[in-house]
Amino acid sequence: MPAYLIGDIDIHDEAGFAAYRAPALEVVRRFGGRTIAIDKAPLTLEGDWASRDMIVIEFPDMEAIRALFASPDYAPLIAARQASARSRLIAVQGLA
């Protein structure tokens, strides 16, 4: 069953985040992740959610997301992301 990683990112260091992005997406692909949406100006339809950068990545299952975050290849990239942006990340189960 697919699972989705949803990121709400506030980038405060564009150069640092740019250096993170390409290697991170490569590691994501190795875990079966496929970027399905990136939006620098998402449309807020209700509430006071003020996001600037959103990403949605589809994975084969929730275990693939867990494996990505436990991977020694992704660990230094997490630190790079956290140094250049404030991230709010959630994983949700897709429908079969």
Rank of each mutant, 00 (worst) to 15 (best):
D39F: 09
F17K: 00
A41M: 15
A24E: 00
I36C: 11
R29D: 05
L45E: 13
M54A: 13
G16V: 02
A15R: 12
I38W: 07
P2M: 05
S51I: 03
R81H: 07
A91F: 03
S71L: 04
W49T: 08
R30A: 08
I55L: 15
I6Y: 07
P72D: 13
G16W: 07
L89R: 10
L45W: 11
I57H: 01
A50Y: 10
I65G: 00
I78L: 11
P2A: 05
G16S: 01
I9A: 02
A75V: 02
P60S: 06
S84N: 14
P23N: 04
A3L: 02
F69W: 12
G94E: 02
P60T: 10
D13L: 01
I65Q: 00
A41S: 15
I38L: 15
A24L: 01
D8C: 10
G47N: 08
M62S: 06
A67P: 05
A18W: 04
I11V: 14
G94A: 05
E58F: 09
A15L: 11
A15D: 14
P72K: 11
A22Q: 05
A3G: 03
Y74P: 00
R21S: 13
L68W: 02
Y74I: 02
R66L: 08
L89H: 09
A67D: 13
V92C: 12
R52I: 03
I65F: 05
F31C: 06
G32I: 01
G94Q: 05
S84Y: 08
Q93T: 12
F17W: 09
L89S: 07
M62H: 10
A19H: 08
G7D: 01
A41T: 15
G47H: 01
Q93K: 05
A79Q: 11
E63K: 15
F59H: 07
G47I: 10
V92S: 05
Y74F: 14
D39A: 13
P23H: 06
I55E: 13
I90R: 06
E58T: 07
F31P: 00
I38H: 12
D61F: 02
G16H: 07
R29W: 11
A22D: 15
R34W: 08
A41V: 05
G47P: 04
R30S: 04
D61H: 01
E63S: 13
L45H: 13
R34H: 13
A3Q: 00
A75G: 03
R86W: 11
G94S: 04
G33F: 01
A64I: 12
L95A: 06
F69S: 06
A79C: 07
L95D: 09
R52P: 00
P76E: 11
L25P: 01
I9M: 10
Q93R: 14
P60H: 09
T44C: 09
R86K: 12
M54N: 09
I6D: 06
Q93F: 04
R52D: 08
L45S: 12
I90S: 07
D10F: 11
A80D: 06
G94C: 03
E58A: 14
W49Y: 09
G7T: 01
S87H: 12
L77F: 01
D73T: 06
D10S: 12
T35A: 14
A24M: 08
A64K: 03
L25G: 08
M62V: 10
L68N: 06
A18R: 03
A67F: 09
H12M: 10
A85S: 11
V56I: 15
D39Q: 12
